[in-house]
Amino acid sequence: MIKLDQVSLAYAGRTGPVLALDGTSLSVGTGEFAAVVGPSGCGKSTLMKLVTGLIKPTSGTVSVDGAQVSGPVKIAGMAFQNANLLPWRTVTDNILLPLEIVEPYRGQFRAKKDEYRARVENLLSIVGLQGFGDRFPWELSGGMQQRASLCRSLIHEPKLLMLDEPFAALDAFTREELWCVLRDVWQRLNFTVILVTHDLREAVFLADTIHVMSARPGRIIDTRKVDFARPRELDVCYEPAFTDLVHVLRNKIAEVRKA
Protein backbone atom coordinates (compact mmCIF):
# COMPACT_ATOMS: atom_id res chain seq x y z
CA MET A 1 0.00 0.00 0.00
CA ILE A 2 2.68 2.47 1.07
CA LYS A 3 6.31 2.25 0.18
CA LEU A 4 9.06 4.69 1.00
CA ASP A 5 12.33 3.88 -0.68
CA GLN A 6 15.50 5.61 0.54
CA VAL A 7 13.61 8.86 1.07
CA SER A 8 15.52 11.95 2.15
CA LEU A 9 14.11 15.36 2.75
CA ALA A 10 15.97 18.60 3.30
CA TYR A 11 14.33 21.95 3.80
CA ALA A 12 15.69 25.46 4.07
CA GLY A 13 16.02 26.36 7.74
CA ARG A 14 17.16 29.59 9.34
CA THR A 15 20.81 28.63 9.17
CA GLY A 16 20.94 26.71 5.92
CA PRO A 17 19.48 23.41 4.79
CA VAL A 18 18.18 21.07 7.48
CA LEU A 19 17.99 17.35 6.85
CA ALA A 20 14.71 16.12 8.28
CA LEU A 21 14.75 12.60 6.89
CA ASP A 22 17.81 10.69 5.74
CA GLY A 23 17.38 7.53 3.69
CA THR A 24 14.14 6.40 5.28
CA SER A 25 12.64 3.18 3.97
CA LEU A 26 9.30 1.95 5.14
CA SER A 27 6.53 -0.20 3.83
CA VAL A 28 3.00 -0.62 5.08
CA GLY A 29 0.66 -3.27 3.72
CA THR A 30 -2.97 -2.76 2.73
CA GLY A 31 -5.21 -2.78 5.76
CA GLU A 32 -2.24 -2.73 8.10
CA PHE A 33 -2.16 -0.63 11.23
CA ALA A 34 1.32 0.86 11.42
CA ALA A 35 2.63 3.09 14.18
CA VAL A 36 5.67 5.33 14.00
CA VAL A 37 7.34 6.24 17.26
CA GLY A 38 10.44 8.27 17.96
CA PRO A 39 11.92 11.12 19.95
CA SER A 40 10.40 14.55 19.37
CA GLY A 41 11.64 16.41 16.34
CA CYS A 42 12.58 13.22 14.51
CA GLY A 43 10.63 14.16 11.40
CA LYS A 44 7.47 12.15 12.00
CA SER A 45 5.26 14.95 10.80
CA THR A 46 7.47 15.30 7.73
CA LEU A 47 6.82 11.64 7.07
CA MET A 48 3.07 12.30 7.16
CA LYS A 49 3.34 15.13 4.68
CA LEU A 50 5.46 13.02 2.35
CA VAL A 51 2.99 10.15 2.32
CA THR A 52 -0.01 12.42 1.71
CA GLY A 53 1.85 14.17 -1.08
CA LEU A 54 1.91 17.60 0.53
CA ILE A 55 5.68 17.81 0.06
CA LYS A 56 8.05 16.11 -2.33
CA PRO A 57 11.11 14.17 -1.19
CA THR A 58 14.53 15.62 -1.96
CA SER A 59 15.61 12.18 -3.06
CA GLY A 60 14.10 8.71 -3.10
CA THR A 61 10.55 7.72 -3.98
CA VAL A 62 7.26 7.54 -2.15
CA SER A 63 4.51 5.40 -3.59
CA VAL A 64 0.99 4.97 -2.32
CA ASP A 65 -1.49 2.44 -3.66
CA GLY A 66 0.90 1.33 -6.38
CA ALA A 67 1.52 4.76 -7.89
CA GLN A 68 4.36 7.14 -7.23
CA VAL A 69 3.23 10.16 -5.24
CA SER A 70 3.59 13.42 -7.12
CA GLY A 71 0.82 15.54 -5.60
CA PRO A 72 -1.89 15.34 -2.93
CA VAL A 73 -2.95 11.68 -2.77
CA LYS A 74 -6.66 12.44 -2.18
CA ILE A 75 -7.30 8.97 -0.76
CA ALA A 76 -6.07 9.88 2.69
CA GLY A 77 -7.88 11.13 5.74
CA MET A 78 -5.93 13.06 8.35
CA ALA A 79 -6.41 13.86 12.00
CA PHE A 80 -4.11 15.78 14.31
CA GLN A 81 -3.48 16.43 17.97
CA ASN A 82 -5.69 19.47 17.68
CA ALA A 83 -9.18 18.55 16.44
CA ASN A 84 -9.26 21.67 14.22
CA LEU A 85 -13.00 21.74 13.84
CA LEU A 86 -14.39 24.87 12.23
CA PRO A 87 -16.25 26.81 14.93
CA TRP A 88 -18.86 28.25 12.57
CA ARG A 89 -20.01 24.82 11.40
CA THR A 90 -22.02 22.27 13.32
CA VAL A 91 -20.43 18.90 13.99
CA THR A 92 -22.29 17.40 11.02
CA ASP A 93 -21.22 20.19 8.69
CA ASN A 94 -17.64 19.86 9.90
CA ILE A 95 -17.64 16.18 9.11
CA LEU A 96 -19.16 16.84 5.68
CA LEU A 97 -16.30 19.19 4.77
CA PRO A 98 -14.12 16.62 2.95
CA LEU A 99 -17.08 15.68 0.76
CA GLU A 100 -17.27 19.28 -0.37
CA ILE A 101 -13.68 18.96 -1.60
CA VAL A 102 -13.05 15.45 -2.91
CA GLU A 103 -14.42 14.12 -6.19
CA PRO A 104 -16.71 12.36 -6.95
CA TYR A 105 -18.62 13.51 -3.85
CA ARG A 106 -18.04 17.14 -4.59
CA GLY A 107 -20.01 17.20 -7.82
CA GLN A 108 -22.95 15.39 -6.23
CA PHE A 109 -22.86 17.22 -2.94
CA ARG A 110 -26.09 19.14 -3.35
CA ALA A 111 -28.02 16.29 -4.86
CA LYS A 112 -26.95 13.68 -2.33
CA LYS A 113 -26.76 15.78 0.78
CA ASP A 114 -29.35 13.70 2.63
CA GLU A 115 -27.49 10.50 1.88
CA TYR A 116 -24.27 12.06 3.12
CA ARG A 117 -25.95 13.28 6.27
CA ALA A 118 -27.11 9.76 6.96
CA ARG A 119 -23.53 8.64 6.50
CA VAL A 120 -22.37 11.20 9.07
CA GLU A 121 -25.04 9.98 11.49
CA ASN A 122 -23.77 6.44 11.01
CA LEU A 123 -20.15 7.41 11.65
CA LEU A 124 -21.15 9.45 14.68
CA SER A 125 -22.87 6.44 16.17
CA ILE A 126 -19.80 4.28 15.53
CA VAL A 127 -17.61 6.67 17.53
CA GLY A 128 -20.26 7.15 20.19
CA LEU A 129 -21.39 10.65 19.30
CA GLN A 130 -24.93 9.94 18.15
CA GLY A 131 -27.24 12.89 18.59
CA PHE A 132 -24.41 15.43 18.69
CA GLY A 133 -24.52 16.32 14.98
CA ASP A 134 -26.31 19.61 15.48
CA ARG A 135 -24.02 20.84 18.21
CA PHE A 136 -21.22 23.28 17.63
CA PRO A 137 -17.64 22.19 18.32
CA TRP A 138 -17.21 24.42 21.35
CA GLU A 139 -20.11 22.65 23.04
CA LEU A 140 -18.12 19.41 22.95
CA SER A 141 -15.43 18.20 25.32
CA GLY A 142 -11.90 17.62 24.01
CA GLY A 143 -12.47 13.90 23.65
CA MET A 144 -15.73 14.42 21.79
CA GLN A 145 -14.09 16.91 19.46
CA GLN A 146 -11.41 14.37 18.71
CA ARG A 147 -14.08 11.78 17.91
CA ALA A 148 -15.69 14.25 15.53
CA SER A 149 -12.29 14.92 13.97
CA LEU A 150 -11.88 11.19 13.45
CA CYS A 151 -15.27 11.08 11.72
CA ARG A 152 -14.23 13.93 9.45
CA SER A 153 -11.10 12.06 8.45
CA LEU A 154 -13.17 8.97 7.58
CA ILE A 155 -16.25 10.40 5.90
CA HIS A 156 -14.90 10.08 2.36
CA GLU A 157 -14.02 6.43 3.03
CA PRO A 158 -10.29 6.93 2.65
CA LYS A 159 -8.10 3.94 1.98
CA LEU A 160 -5.49 5.49 4.19
CA LEU A 161 -5.83 7.18 7.55
CA MET A 162 -2.97 9.37 8.75
CA LEU A 163 -2.99 10.19 12.45
CA ASP A 164 -0.52 12.66 13.94
CA GLU A 165 -0.60 12.23 17.71
CA PRO A 166 -4.39 12.42 17.69
CA PHE A 167 -4.86 11.62 21.37
CA ALA A 168 -1.88 13.46 22.84
CA ALA A 169 -3.92 16.33 24.26
CA LEU A 170 -6.47 14.15 26.06
CA ASP A 171 -6.54 12.91 29.63
CA ALA A 172 -5.53 9.31 30.24
CA PHE A 173 -9.03 7.86 30.57
CA THR A 174 -10.42 9.59 27.51
CA ARG A 175 -7.35 8.54 25.59
CA GLU A 176 -7.86 4.85 26.37
CA GLU A 177 -11.52 5.22 25.46
CA LEU A 178 -10.55 6.63 22.10
CA TRP A 179 -8.00 3.87 21.52
CA CYS A 180 -10.92 1.50 21.62
CA VAL A 181 -12.99 3.74 19.34
CA LEU A 182 -10.18 3.79 16.81
CA ARG A 183 -9.66 0.04 17.15
CA ASP A 184 -13.35 -0.61 16.49
CA VAL A 185 -13.62 1.76 13.54
CA TRP A 186 -10.53 0.27 11.98
CA GLN A 187 -11.77 -3.27 12.42
CA ARG A 188 -15.11 -2.34 10.93
CA LEU A 189 -14.05 -0.25 7.96
CA ASN A 190 -10.72 -1.84 7.24
CA PHE A 191 -8.43 0.89 5.99
CA THR A 192 -4.67 1.32 6.26
CA VAL A 193 -3.47 3.43 9.18
CA ILE A 194 -0.26 5.26 9.91
CA LEU A 195 -0.30 6.49 13.48
CA VAL A 196 2.44 8.86 14.57
CA THR A 197 2.70 8.95 18.35
CA HIS A 198 4.89 9.55 21.38
CA ASP A 199 2.85 7.17 23.45
CA LEU A 200 4.44 3.72 23.32
CA ARG A 201 1.53 1.98 25.03
CA GLU A 202 -0.79 3.50 22.46
CA ALA A 203 1.41 2.19 19.65
CA VAL A 204 1.65 -1.31 21.11
CA PHE A 205 -2.05 -1.53 21.91
CA LEU A 206 -3.24 -0.42 18.49
CA ALA A 207 -0.66 -1.31 15.89
CA ASP A 208 0.29 -4.39 13.89
CA THR A 209 3.74 -3.01 13.22
CA ILE A 210 5.77 -0.40 15.06
CA HIS A 211 8.52 1.55 13.35
CA VAL A 212 11.05 3.31 15.55
CA MET A 213 12.65 6.45 14.17
CA SER A 214 16.02 7.88 15.11
CA ALA A 215 16.59 11.47 16.17
CA ARG A 216 16.98 14.03 13.39
CA PRO A 217 17.80 13.36 10.64
CA GLY A 218 15.14 10.68 10.92
CA ARG A 219 15.63 7.12 9.79
CA ILE A 220 13.71 3.97 10.61
CA ILE A 221 16.07 2.11 12.93
CA ASP A 222 13.84 -0.69 14.11
CA THR A 223 10.62 -2.38 13.07
CA ARG A 224 8.67 -4.63 15.41
CA LYS A 225 5.67 -6.81 14.76
CA VAL A 226 3.02 -6.76 17.45
CA ASP A 227 1.21 -10.06 17.42
CA PHE A 228 -1.26 -9.89 20.27
CA ALA A 229 -4.51 -11.50 19.20
CA ARG A 230 -7.28 -9.27 17.96
CA PRO A 231 -9.66 -7.93 19.01
CA ARG A 232 -7.51 -6.57 21.82
CA GLU A 233 -9.01 -5.48 25.10
CA LEU A 234 -7.46 -2.83 27.32
CA ASP A 235 -6.45 -5.60 29.73
CA VAL A 236 -3.75 -6.60 27.27
CA CYS A 237 -1.85 -3.52 28.42
CA TYR A 238 -1.16 -5.23 31.72
CA GLU A 239 0.18 -8.47 30.34
CA PRO A 240 3.91 -9.04 30.80
CA ALA A 241 4.51 -9.47 27.05
CA PHE A 242 2.93 -6.07 26.47
CA THR A 243 4.95 -4.32 29.14
CA ASP A 244 8.11 -6.00 27.91
CA LEU A 245 7.59 -4.70 24.38
CA VAL A 246 6.91 -1.20 25.68
CA HIS A 247 10.06 -1.48 27.74
CA VAL A 248 12.17 -2.55 24.76
CA LEU A 249 10.82 0.31 22.67
CA ARG A 250 11.42 2.70 25.54
CA ASN A 251 15.07 1.69 25.72
CA LYS A 252 15.47 2.01 21.96
CA ILE A 253 14.24 5.56 22.03
CA ALA A 254 16.33 6.45 25.07
CA GLU A 255 19.32 5.17 23.11
CA VAL A 256 18.66 7.29 20.02
CA ARG A 257 17.93 10.32 22.16
CA LYS A 258 21.37 10.10 23.63
CA ALA A 259 23.09 9.57 20.31
Binding site: K49, T52, G53, L54, G71, P72, V73, K74, A76, M78, F80, N82, N84, L86, L97, P98, I101, V102, E103, R152, S153, H156, M162, D164
Partner: peptide, 13 residues
Protein backbone atom coordinates in the same frame (compact mmCIF):
# COMPACT_ATOMS: atom_id res chain seq x y z
CA UNK B 1 -4.17 26.75 11.07
CA UNK B 2 -1.55 24.92 8.97
CA UNK B 3 -3.05 21.54 9.99
CA UNK B 4 -6.42 22.59 8.64
CA UNK B 5 -4.82 23.59 5.38
CA UNK B 6 -2.96 20.26 5.27
CA UNK B 7 -6.18 18.32 5.80
CA UNK B 8 -7.83 20.06 2.88
CA UNK B 9 -4.84 20.13 0.57
CA UNK B 10 -4.22 16.42 1.07
CA UNK B 11 -7.74 15.95 -0.25
CA UNK B 12 -6.81 17.86 -3.37
CA UNK B 13 -8.32 21.20 -2.40
Amino acid sequence: EPEMEDVLRALGA
